[in-house]
């Protein structure tokens, strides 16, 4: 009987070790893949972009093998908690609401929210100026939350599955304005589709810190923080930054 127990215990220990080793070997990065230029899926199906470059740099510093898993944006936090992946590098804003569900690393960049609209239209981006305007943004984002909280009763709010779909409706004239991350909007304004559009007003919100989400109390958080400090100190971060933006976004 005693022997039996010992064998079982030993087996359990081996299993625990093996499964832990498996987890330690390969980290899975969760991202969306539809949020250019931060994370997007290229023609070959690979997920690329600023977020991915940062994530791979962090993995290199942690000496971990990483693979990328994509998820729909509005299911990305539940998927993290269901262990579909180990950390989310998807330009996710650190908010109090999200902190109840996940832990965040130190911010790896700072975002601002700014409206864009057609060059031909004059809009003041305050409550009076926006009254009755159709404003689009992505569902489950900080821009959506900001609009609901601050302009909910003034604007006709349209929520999209992806930011790209909001831009499509902006170009077709279904909506008057899009509120979104300034970098993402900037990327679109530079593209062919965005020629006729421009930023409207000043950024409405600039305390939007972007972090990497991990499961609650996961020690991975500290490792990621250490790696993040390293890539900022050794210039890797700046190199990646300069590939995408002519200004520092840290």
């Amino acid at each position: 009987m005693n022997n039996c127990k010992k064998i079982l215990l030993a087996l359990a220990a081996v299993f625990a070790l093996v499964s832990q080793a498996a987890v330690a070997d390969k980290l899975r990065i969760g991202t969306e893949g539809a949020y250019p230029p931060f994370n997007l899926t290229d023609a070959s199906g690979k997920v690329v972009g600023f977020d991915m470059d940062i994530a791979h740099a962090l993995c290199a510093k942690m000496k971990a093998e990483c693979e990328v898993v994509t998820s729909d944006w509005d299911g990305i936090i539940p998927a993290l908690n269901a262990k579909k992946f180990d950390f989310i590098v998807a330009s996710m804003s650190i908010t109090d609401e999200r902190k109840q569900a996940v832990d965040f690393t130190d911010p790896y960049y700072t975002n601002k929210l700014q409206f864009i609209g057609p060059k031909s239209a004059k809009v003041a981006v305050d409550k009076a100026g926006l009254k009755g305007k159709a404003v689009g943004t992505q569902r489950a984002t900080i821009a959506g939350e900001w609009l609901e909280k601050n302009m909910g009763d003034a604007v006709d709010l349209k929520l999209y599955d992806t930011q790209e779909n909001a831009y499509l409706d902006l170009s077709s004239g279904r909506i008057d304005l899009v509120l979104g991350d300034v970098f993402v909007n900037w990327g679109w304004l530079k593209s062919d589709a965005g020629k006729e559009f421009e930023f409207k007003g000043e950024p409405v919100f600039d305390n939007d810190k972007i972090g990497i989400a991990v499961r609650k109390n996961d020690p991975l958080r500290e490792k990621l923080n250490a790696a993040l400090k390293e890539i900022i100190a050794d210039g890797t971060y700046k190199k990646i930054n300069d590939q995408y933006f002519p200004f520092s976004i840290l």
Binding site: D74, I77, R98, A101, G136, Y160
Partner: peptide, 20 residues
Amino acid sequence: STVTLLELTGMARTIIARTY
């Protein structure tokens, strides 16, 4: 719900975006 309509599924997804 994929074209911004807040029918039952769209409404559910919007509420989930707030409550997780």
